[in-house]
Computed example of a mutant assay.
Amino acid sequence: MRVAFAGTPEFARAALERLPAAGFTVPLVLTQPDRPAGRGMKLQPSPVKQFALERAIPVAQPRSLRLDGKFPDEAAAARDALLEARPDVLVVAAYGLILPQWVLDLPRLGCLNIHASLLPRWRGAAPIHRAIEAGDAETGVTIMQMDAGLDTGDMLLEERQPIAPDDTTASLHDKLAALGGRLIVEALELAACGGFQPVKQPEQGVTYAHKIEKAEAAVDWSLPADAIERRIRAFDPFPGAAGQLRGETVKLWKARAVMRGRGSVEPGTIVALDEHGVGVACGEGRLELTELQRPGGKRLAAADFLRGFPLEPGERFTP
């Protein structure tokens, strides 16, 4: 089977790596254009492109696939590359571009998407972050037959993944990336023998995982402690939850929620300090910050952080 692939970040690379290993021919990879990164802001290839180059797989990097859009020449070149690749199926994982109808129709088996949620919950751009933020007990991976809607296609395979109490987006991402790579191989093996049994998504239970914005990093201390703790885990590694303290933006990487009802202290006020954490009053309960980071510094356990940045009870994180 000839399997073209469209994806960009590490989540997608984990799936792409599984395809040649499982015996599938990958004649073409589509990925986002190189982006500036690092201190020197030099152009860097995506993780998917890096793997494709290592395996000498042809790569196309159009800024759009719309033949009537802003970059019609790039879209036409990508279409020519796909036609030449003659894929039986296109696997899509966190690609970052909308696929127009001509792409969906081109492979004889259509386009299969690796989506990091249990559809129809958390359709959209940030399903891992939003599942943790919402306090979901589990998530998973769905292999979906793509259609013109936003993550609305028929489901082909699904597997659940518990969300651990200490899971961050980083740790859960790695679990789901490995799961997605295994499931897409199973799906392609089913496709090879005509074994698909598509299931329509339920109409009830639809939620949308909106893109994470940098502005969400600022902690709202009026929220309950457990909600803030979930957001800290959800925003690790990006954008990183943060609070303003003495005019500095302090990143908050780990915390424990201590729920003891609504106190009389202004939310954001430091109420306790010891080697185990920095206790901060919240709208409900208290949050013990156990790993923090100053601008330009490293992530530090609370005790090490306090040695370099001594605090006093009564100081307050400001909006």
Rank of each mutant, 00 (worst) to 15 (best):
E284N: 09
G268N: 06
L82G: 00
I114Q: 00
L188E: 12
P47A: 01
R182T: 12
A94F: 11
T25E: 15
A215C: 10
G205Q: 12
T152P: 05
R55D: 03
A255M: 02
Q32P: 10
A4L: 13
Q101P: 07
Y208C: 03
A225K: 05
R18S: 05
H173A: 12
A257V: 00
P120A: 00
A148W: 11
P62D: 05
A12M: 09
R307S: 11
P165L: 08
L176H: 05
Q244G: 04
R63P: 08
L156V: 08
L43R: 15
P9F: 10
M1K: 07
Q161T: 09
M146R: 05
L90P: 00
R63K: 15
A192N: 10
R299S: 12
A234S: 09
W221A: 02
V271G: 00
T31H: 10
A191D: 11
D174A: 15
V219H: 06
A125L: 11
L28Y: 11
W253P: 02
L28K: 03
R286D: 14
H115C: 01
F309I: 11
I143N: 01
R63S: 08
G181T: 08
R79M: 08
V91T: 06
T207D: 15
G296N: 05
A22S: 08
K175E: 10
E54A: 15
A6F: 14
V103Y: 06
R123V: 03
T142V: 04
A227K: 15
L150Y: 12
D304Y: 07
A15V: 13
Q197F: 13
A177I: 07
G261A: 01
T318C: 02
D73V: 13
P107H: 07
P72M: 05
L311F: 04
A234L: 03
A93D: 06
